[in-house]
Design a binder for these strands. Structure first.
Lengths: 158, 158
DNA sequence: ATTTTAGTTCTGTATACCGAGAACTAAAAA
DNA sequence: TTTTTAGTTCTCGGTATACAGAACTAAAAT
């Protein structure tokens, strides 16, 4: 394993720091978070196992486990370059559209549960039931509108 | 502390179970998650400390800490009833609108960081930069559209 | 004045998670 | 065939979290 630490400017380093923190706040543990951040900031968007390891200064096991975690959750993807043995990894922001869709689906499941709950609630807690219903309505409305909104954006930007 | 366990039907119990799991998946630990779920499913939307404790069958400390956690993160609210000493707690879904706004603001911060990152990226990684830019554009578009969308929903529903 | 209520805070334990380091493995290179 | 590469898996120590139970506290009730 050649030490293939990537050169980073101070600016890039602080950006990785910040982006890492943002990823941590959204639920990742430190190493995966910094890995994602590095793959967004580094000049080359495709980095190898040992570049990631050496640049972040972490152990092989941490690198391996984090990479696999991020592959399984669809946050990064693997690409192989012709004739090269090493795998390269890339931040999967390219697929942000799917991500938004997925978030929305999870929201949908949550709201479905809320609908079931609302159905069996007593009718006398008017204000509470009302709020529940409003939220359900709005989320369902949003889910109907999103495709249209998406189209509007697409046409508006050319 | 009188044992003021609330009566729940089997159906309500399984709904609490499910809603609890949904809350757990969104980042809460078991007790706070079940507490929120109970406060959504129970007939009476306002429950006291000891009702929560007795119904969920948990310790006083767990109850106290969870309540305070949920108060601090704005997931429940406290209400006092005239002449009563005990505090009552209520699930704060009533304020779902603020929640959506907050989620959006967090998204905004994330995207701001991405903008800074994009600015300092080399120009030659065309595809990657393009994706980054697209996502930034879409999120910003969404943030502009949301108020309008909200108005559209409001007028459409009366 | 003392007792009860409605909690909070402290202490202890069990468990989970993180990440390092070393041992291991399968494929490719030499 | 052996050696190197590119990782994976195992073991371990440190730290954080979650919750129970007990001790504590301030206000209210008696």
């Amino acid at each position: 394993m050649t030490k293939s630490k990537i050169k980073l400017t101070d600016n890039q380093k602080t950006l990785i720091e910040k982006m890492g923190m943002a990823y941590e706040q959204s639920g990742f543990s430190p190493v995966p978070a910094r890995l994602l951040a590095l793959l967004m900031v580094a000049e080359d968007p495709d980095l190898t196992f040992d570049q990631l390891q050496a640049t972040l200064g972490i152990s092989k096991s941490a690198t391996s486990n984090s990479i696999n975690l991020l592959l399984n959750t669809g946050k990064i993807e693997q690409i192989s370059k012709l004739g090269e043995r090493k795998r390269y990894f890339r931040n999967r922001i390219v697929h942000w559209k799917e991500d938004i869709k997925k978030t929305n689906e999870r929201m949908g499941l949550f709201v479905d549960l809320m609908k079931t709950i609302l159905k069996q609630r007593p009718g006398d807690t008017v204000e509470f039931n009302q709020s529940l219903k409003e939220m359900i309505d709005f989320v369902e409305f949003l889910q109907r509108e999103l495709p249209l909104l998406y189209k509007k954006w697409e046409t508006g930007r050319k």
